[in-house]
Every structure is written in C-alpha cells, then in structure tokens.
C-alpha cells in the first residue's frame, strides 16, 4: 500500500509532461486540421493533391517513425541551421520536438475526421445560405462550420484521447532531459529498480485512464453545449470507441 501511494505521488509529477504534450499540440493541431480538411475538399488540384498526400502519409505511418524521422532531421540540420541562429537548444528540446511531431500527426487524423464531417454537412443548408446571398466566408462561418463541428465532435473526442495515449511514446523516441520524465519513462525506471512490473505499470495505466475519463467528461460538456438547441440533448456515449 505504501509503495502504491509512493508511486501515485511520483507519477503525479510525470503525468504533467503527458498533459503538457497533449495540451500543447491539440489547439495547433485543431487549427491545422481545419485547413487540411478544407484543402482536401478544395477543387484546386494542387492543394487537393498536397493535402490528400499529407493526410495519407501521416495516417499511414507509425507515429514512432515520425518522431525518429523529424528528430534526426532536426539533428542533422543542427550545425548548418540551428547553431548559427542560436536556437539549437530550443529546437532540439523534447518539449519542443514532441509537440511539433504530435501536431503534424494529429492534424492529419483530425483533418480526416473534419473532412468526413464536411462532406456530411447537409447540402440543402449550404444551398439555402447561397440563396440568401451569403459570401463564401459567411457560408463557412454561419452554416458549414457549426454543422461540421457538431458532426465531428464525438470522433474528435476519441482522437484527443488517442493523442493523449500517443504521448506515451514521446520519450521512447526523444532523449529524456534531466528529470523530465513522463509516465512511461517513470514506470520503466521504477521497474528497473525493483522489478515490480504489476505495481508501476498499473499506476501509470491508472493515470492514463483517469486523464482519459476527464477528457471524455470535459468534451462531453462541450458537446452538450454544442447541442443545446436540440430538443433532447444527446449525451455523449460513455463507452469509448477508440478507433483511429
């Protein structure tokens, strides 16, 4: 019991790194994903091909490889670019590289979700908006976007939880700086000290579960607010389907 409480205390520091990685990458990834979804729906062949290719590449390859690739790319550019600019310590720091790669990754997945929602926006509503003489930006802001975000929100919630789970491999690919260890590294270090796999990994798993539930709760509140105009407010299903 004492060991369990010790672990809980130790990992309460570590979980902050996971939360940081997720919190730093979700807003930027969200904005990027909107542009990616619009790009994928764009009639312009160049933009369309590029965004399609980007989304396909980042959804079709493991995040683990993406981490290694971007980190080693940044390393090999170090002497030529980052050192002269004097930002080498900043760019190569995992607290910068981690969110960077996570943003690129989650933008692709979220972009695909938003693209699916964009195609599901009722055509009649868009036509009605056009008939009212709304400009394209007005159409997007007043008709397409409110529909899109409501359609996409449940899937987006899953993606956020999945992204939070993906933060577990950040420090397996990037170097750990000093005592800045996340849940997985902490669990692994503790395991290597006393070989108690069941205790340490379960505590880490508990933290992951707890944060995932909090994310579900918060995003569920947002969903209720988004759907407040509906007669019977649809509740977010609490049984997660974590499928990317």
């Amino acid at each position: 019991m004492q060991a369990f409480l010790n672990d809980l205390a130790l990992m309460s520091q570590a979980v902050l790194f996971n939360i940081y990685f997720a919190a730093a990458s979700i807003p930027i990834g969200f904005v990027l994903a909107v542009f990616l979804a619009l790009g994928k729906a764009s009639p312009n062949p160049i933009i369309n091909r590029l965004t399609r290719g980007y989304i396909y590449a980042f959804r079709g390859s493991p995040l683990f490889i993406q981490f290694f690739m971007f980190y080693s790319l940044a390393l090999s550019l170090n002497i030529a670019v980052w050192k002269p600019l004097g930002i080498s310590g900043f760019v190569l720091h995992p607290l910068f590289m981690g969110p960077l790669v996570l943003v690129l990754n989650t933008a692709a997945y979220t972009g695909e979700i938003f693209y699916g929602a964009l195609r599901a926006v009722p055509r009649g509503e868009v036509e009605a908006a056009r008939a009212y003489g709304m400009s394209r930006s007005q159409q997007f802001r007043r008709v397409v976007w409110p529909n899109l975000i409501r359609l996409a929100w449940p899937a987006y919630t899953n993606e956020v939880v999945f992204l939070f789970h993906a933060t577990a491999i950040v420090y397996f690919a990037l170097p750990v700086v000093g005592a800045q260890a996340d849940l997985m590294i902490t669990a692994k270090t503790l395991f290597e000290r006393d070989y108690n796999a069941f205790l340490h990994f379960s505590v880490a798993a508990l933290y992951f579960l707890a944060v995932s539930l909090v994310v579900f709760f918060l995003f569920g509140l947002v969903y209720q607010r988004l759907m407040r105009h509906m007669p019977a407010p649809p509740r977010m299903r609490f049984r997660p389907k974590w499928m990317r």
Binding site: M184, K188, F208
Partner: peptide, 15 residues
C-alpha cells in the same frame, strides 16, 4: 483499450 498500446505492449512480456 483505455490504456496506451505501448504500455500494455511493454507490460505483458515483462509480466
């Protein structure tokens, strides 16, 4: 499904 795949992936062989 509620914990990261990498956690279980490491935990199971060690356990």
């Amino acid at each position: 499904r509620g914990v990261p795949d990498v956690l279980f992936f490491l935990f199971f062989p060690l356990a």
